[in-house]
Design a protein around this nucleic acid. Structure first.
Lengths: 221, 221, 221, 221
DNA sequence: CATGAATGAGTGTTCATTCAT
DNA sequence: TATGAATGAACACTCATTCAT
């Protein structure tokens, strides 16, 4: 907590072995969080499960928070790899649908992990170091796409959409839902419903879009 | 964690002094959680801030979790006192609007507390002892009211609406929003949008309601 | 008390330093029990007297009971190292005399420690994990040797002899006796007297042994 | 621990109600010790089980040790009421047999209580205030009676006999024996065996008594 | 006198982090 | 560089005892 860089990985692993070590540490952390909750997530246990000494863990991560952060980023990366394809969708609704799909997939793949990491993102120590709103920014971008109702405050709408997606998928995860398609359908209902009505509430909103392409299309594979 | 009743209050305060002690303990816990996050929430600190000895805390709460639970219930009680009025609203939309209002008020009054307590509700040790889904059940009831689109799976829809409200208000709390009316408007957009579209998606959905009383009315007092 | 393995040593010390740590912890525990009684036996004090941090104690002993158990076993080991030679004695009486000698030596060496540890053995949490009756079993074996009166219920007789030895030497320890030879003489009187008379009481007991080799011989060195 | 009289009952209960309160406190203590071991024996629990406030407990007993002591004395009194009849026995062996009978009865009636209280007697804080060796003194007296082998050191022999009886009956209690007659038989074997041989070992011991009235008679009623 | 709320030193235990080897 | 022994601040919780009501 002392040094300002206490959250950055201590060194980028250049050698292959080092990269492997880092990867096993992250996966060990993920598994512990999944199976035992945040209570079971302690550095000694992570090291042990990774088959590495606690000293080695601190070679690569200067603090527990740094490890948490790295895991958060690993998951964010996985999500983005999936979500960025949304940018290539033909129009706004399709793009948004793809993004929702990515969220749903991410969540239902490792629900407990996703949910608990979501909570960690709220921790003040981590928030500062998080590419915060990368998710929100992506949505922000997509909301500009044609075919979606123009929002008064785009950033706010993006944040709302992000929060709304997160709330729904976390809830589904807690209930151990597994039906991706159904969840996708409901999230789309909420997102597109919100966009339409929030926009409409603004003076001069465009009711016309009520029957636009926003109506549930085929959705992503 | 030893006894099964380790979460029930240890003894009910009979004397006035005792009731005061319990109240200060709960409020001290609330304040600590608000100002320092869950990290600052430890039994010794709670007792100190309440101006009471640690022994007194354990006279009334057999464990830290019991204290957390009691706080959770205190807040749930406050919410319900506000929310139950929804049952007296003339129709479904009005009732739902009132419920959303209660949620928004609760959240924006003590945003950090509300958010962190929401997270605590997810802890397995507590979930079991929680009147789980009191919120969801209330919504479930309201969704049956006339004026709202009939949902295929009412319980699921209720859970979704609950998750969606919670996601949006938590997000607003994190961003330290203070404009209750605007937040209310957006949550209504999401909720009514979801209900309409989720219902519509079901075969034989009723497009007619698109212009029904669900459209933003004056909102709750 | 939580995990079932909370009494097994947590990890075996591999490095020399670790072995030293464990040994000092055990000896510190022994000394505290000796000098301050069980009241002074608390983990923090043990660690401090051992010149080790409390954390180190818990590296090797998962709980206070585990430490107690280990100490119990250390002492049992010392006793057995001495007592097992009894098996090589030429006949029953000689063997029994040797065993009594070992008991007497053990007791008078560190009387308070021996007495208090004896009491600990009775604690339910520990009894389960104790090679219970190793002492009794040894006696059981010796009682089969020639030259000793045959007992009706050998196991019961063995238990009685064990209890009787323990009672006498504990009592002597409490009185701070130091004359090993005299104590040995009296314990032999009780043990052989018991064996002869308990056997005689059974129908067809052999009064003949009244003047056998059971009469106090020279005893062990 | 401060006042020198911290172990004496704070006041002799004169009124009938007070005597009742004291009695229920003692019995509550006894039951807690029996059922939960010394761990369950704490002042608050005793008061609660006795149906009395903790404040009242401290009205009658200035400290926990005072309560323990009083319980110890209650049990000693019960024992003596039974044992003193031994003084009226016609000869030494009969008297001793009666004493053994009293010990056996006392032990098997409430074995766990008896055993744990025996251990408490060893506590330094209590030993000082105990009519120590009332048991030993009684034996001492009995050993002077005709018909028993003369011992060199009568006090030592008495202590040995006491320790030996206690060891055997405690052991039997731990094994949850219930056959009073058999236990009595074995204790007599040990006691008389010890007396005969310990005496015989002294120069000029009287082998003659080998077949004296010490041989197991009918035993006490 | 009885009550029971309040006290607080004390105890067992955890876990992030350091550093000698 | 990797190891794992060691550290110690921090924390949950207990219980003998006091004292205002």
């Amino acid at each position: 907590m002392s040094r300002p860089d206490a959250l950055l990985p201590r060194k980028s692993p250049r050698q292959r072995r080092a990269r492997l070590t880092v990867a096993s540490l992250l996966e060990a952390a993920a598994q512990l969080i999944e199976t035992q909750g945040m209570d079971g997530f302690n550095t000694n246990a992570v090291a042990e499960r990774a088959g590495v000494s606690i000293g080695s863990l601190y070679q690569y991560f200067p603090s527990k928070d740094a490890l948490t952060l790295a895991l958060l980023e690993r998951e964010a990366g996985r999500f983005e790899a999936d979500a960025l394809a949304a940018l290539e969708a033909p129009d706004g609704p399709a793009a948004l649908r793809h993004l929702i799909g990515a969220s749903v997939r991410q969540q239902l793949e490792r629900p407990e992990l996703a949910r608990l990491l979501d909570e960690q993102e709220g921790r003040p120590e981590l928030r500062a170091h998080l590419d915060k709103g990368r998710f929100g920014q992506l949505i922000d971008t997509l909301l500009q796409r044609p075919g979606l109702p123009r929002q008064m405050d785009a950033a706010l709408a993006a944040a709302d959409v992000a929060a709304l997606i997160r709330g729904l998928v976390d809830g589904a995860g807690e209930r151990r839902e597994t039906d991706l398609a159904d969840l996708q359908r409901r999230v789309e209902a909420a997102v597109f419903g919100y966009l339409e009505r929030a926009a409409a509430a603004a003076p001069g909103g465009q009711g016309r879009e009520c029957e636009s392409g926003m109506r549930a299309g085929p959705g992503p594979a």
